[in-house]
């Protein structure tokens, strides 16, 4: 992953693959650090699997060709900055991932966060996405409930959603 935005896109897709119907993403940034929280109501992870999630190539989704590198990459990049990744989960209830990355010289660039949010929101019609993005004291909130009934596979709609997040990011 070249950017933190790529990590968020990859990790949040784990929630979709875990059959979540609700995913909440908080991406809070200040001059010192970036705090990411991704919470879902997916199938959750049992204790045994939870102890292996940071092992490279560990995946519970071999049948759908998961690579098993997303979480190890995020952990490695967070720890390089002096930060950490913590995952807590309850089977049949859901999973919460919290990551903190400090803005040191080793911190990856944030990258195209607008594109990440747009790609997630248009990735699945069966998921309600709630996103809170803050930069310092400036924030915006998004809920995909506002898009109920819209064809998310329409190129026109996808383009509009990309532009929407681009505008929201540039307004921060």
């Amino acid at each position: 992953m070249r950017t933190i935005a790529d990590h968020v896109l990859d990790i949040a897709q784990n929630s979709v693959n875990a059959q979540a119907t609700y995913v909440k993403i908080n991406f809070v940034e200040d001059h010192e650090k970036i705090v990411i929280k991704i919470k879902d109501n997916g199938c959750g992870i049992n204790k045994e699997e939870l102890s292996k999630i940071f092992d490279p190539f560990f995946t519970t989704h071999e049948e759908i060709r998961r690579v098993g590198l997303g979480l190890p990459f995020l952990k490695q990049n967070a720890e390089l900055t002096g930060g950490y990744v913590h995952v807590s989960s309850t089977p049949k209830i859901g999973t919460v991932l919290e990551a903190t990355l400090f803005k040191t010289i080793d911190c990856q660039p944030i990258g195209d966060l607008a594109g990440t949010f747009a790609a997630l929101v248009t990735s699945s019609t069966g998921v309600t996405w709630e996103i809170r993005r803050c930069l310092g004291k400036e924030c915006y909130d998004f809920s995909s409930k506002a898009l109920d009934g819209v064809d998310l596979s329409s190129p026109k709609v996808i383009k509009m959603i990309f532009e929407y997040f681009k505008n929201m990011e540039s307004s921060l």
Partner: peptide, 20 residues
């Protein structure tokens, strides 16, 4: 703290629904 509204998003929805 400034929280932005979802008005713009609502416009996207209305436009998309109108077009289809």
């Amino acid at each position: 703290m400034k929280i932005k509204s979802l008005e713009e998003l609502q416009k996207i929805k209305e436009k998309a629904l109108k077009e289809i």
